[in-house]
Design a protein around this nucleic acid. Sequence first.
DNA 1: ATTGACCTTATAGCGACTATATAGTTTTAA
DNA 2: TTAAAACTATATAGTCGCTATAAGGTCAAT
Lengths: 135, 135
Amino acid sequence: MRIGQLAQSVGVDTQTIRFYERQGLLPPPGRQENGYRVYTEKHVERLAFIRRCRILDLSLAEIHELKRYQDAPHQSCTAVNALLDDHISHVRSQITALQALEKQLVSLRARCNDDREVKACGVLAGISEGSMHQQ
Amino acid sequence: MRIGQLAQSVGVDTQTIRFYERQGLLPPPGRQENGYRVYTEKHVERLAFIRRCRILDLSLAEIHELKRYQDAPHQSCTAVNALLDDHISHVRSQITALQALEKQLVSLRARCNDDREVKACGVLAGISEGSMHQQ
DNA sequence: ATTGACCTTATAGCGACTATATAGTTTTAA
DNA sequence: TTAAAACTATATAGTCGCTATAAGGTCAAT
Ligand SMILES: [Zn+2]
Ligand SMILES: [Zn+2]
Ligand SMILES: [Zn+2]
Ligand SMILES: [Zn+2]
């Protein structure tokens, strides 16, 4: 299986596959005489795993870490679960921050009804005043 | 006022100030004979404005756009308000996406109680299975 | 013989900084 | 007075996870 086929079967760009290889996420495949990469079913699985991790918004570093755990299958999975717990709290704090941001933006927006002159725009005034509780 | 003073009074790194200048966000200041940048109160206000925009997570492009509107103070502010509306919907869709992600992660995490072998870890199994509704 | 689809590497760009290297200037203190 | 510390300058590279471009080699079909 060549790179284009792998790319299509997992739904990834060929560039991305080479990128993962350079990053050490995907093991270097064999090569044909002409230099073309040759992949196996294991590569398909591995790449699909990476993609599913990315859908979960795990960073490449976190995926690396998961890989290291997979390579020691008889150890306790505490670290795996902890990684996920950490990631969940990453996501939660992002949500919290964005919700606070949304509140701020909505109240800023409420300072202007349409059709004023820019000079009198409540939104611009609100930003310029600095009447924002930071963070 | 030199760059360090400006940086301290607004709470920004000097590098960031030079970066904003290169980006055309902050007008190039005057220079002393020795080449040092000299800033005025207007620069302080302008930089503070930029920072408040960044706290609202507006992109540098969006801040540029706001600046253009400020330069035409007698036009209608419809575009300003529209920019903010767009930005609010950016933020809202980010929140929605992250909430869906959180749900997925929490249900994945529920598949494993601690102290299993990695081999039997419900989290890793969950990712590998691909039993994830995508997006 | 040439088109087209595929493959290769190398390099640069995105956004918004941040860090490093190297060098010149000013200020402070021994 | 001189040496160190603190400040300034430019240029360049790194962050993250790709994505795009350039310039070329390979292969099958027309
Ligand atoms: Zn994470
Ligand atoms: Zn307005
Ligand atoms: Zn926006
Ligand atoms: Zn587990």
